[in-house]
């Protein structure tokens, strides 16, 4: 992220409460991830230690530290979704996209297809448990998902078998 963009984001968040999360959220939204360079620049600008920012960025599943694909698929692995079959959804997705997910050392699963079209991530509860199991693609929620639904859903985002 370039310095001017970051300055503009910082300027929009001047209330102390939730300030850092607000800024980090905007960075995530604009860039699709929070890069190390941006985090270091932010640390300088707001006078907050990089250890604190990194702690926040690794705590919330909302943030990604690595670049992601064109479309981000987030599978909810919260309790309700887990019970309703989220693991089967994840496995089916892996099969369709030809990826093998592996939990990284931060415990955040995040894997991107080689063509950089899709990134698969997991989250803990979207707060939509009544529609479990739930997945989200680029901000669109899909409830009551089944492995059979996936090809159709992925098709909306340009996936071809």
């Amino acid at each position: 992220m370039d310095e001017r963009t970051l300055d503009a984001i910082i300027a929009r968040h001047d209330a102390p409460a939730g300030r850092l999360l607000g800024i980090l959220g905007e960075i995530q939204n604009q860039e699709g991830y929070v890069s190390r360079e941006t985090l270091e620049m932010l640390s300088e600008k707001v006078g907050v230690r990089i250890s604190q920012l990194y702690g926040l960025a690794t705590f919330y599943s909302y943030f990604t530290l690595r670049p992601v694909g064109d479309h981000v698929i987030t599978i909810c692995m919260g309790t309700a979704c887990h019970v309703k079959g989220a693991v089967a959804i994840l496995e089916a997705l892996e099969g369709l996209l030809g990826i093998k997910s592996d939990v990284t050392d931060d415990g955040k699963l995040s894997i991107t297809t080689i063509d950089r079209k899709f990134t698969v991530e997991i989250a803990r509860c979207f707060g939509a448990c009544s529609m479990a199991p739930v997945l989200r693609i680029d901000g669109n929620l899909y409830g009551y998902a089944t492995p059979e639904d996936l090809p159709g859903i992925l098709g909306e985002y340009g996936w071809k078998p």
């Binding site: 190390r36 990194y54 702690g55 690794t58 705590f59 931060d106 415990g107 955040k108």
Partner: peptide, 18 residues
């Protein structure tokens, strides 16, 4: 402020950023 908690839940560790 050189070190902090990293990650969350069972993956939580203490170390330097990155």
């Amino acid at each position: 402020g050189a070190i902090n908690f990293i990650n969350r839940g069972p993956y939580t560790v203490v170390n330097t950023p990155y």
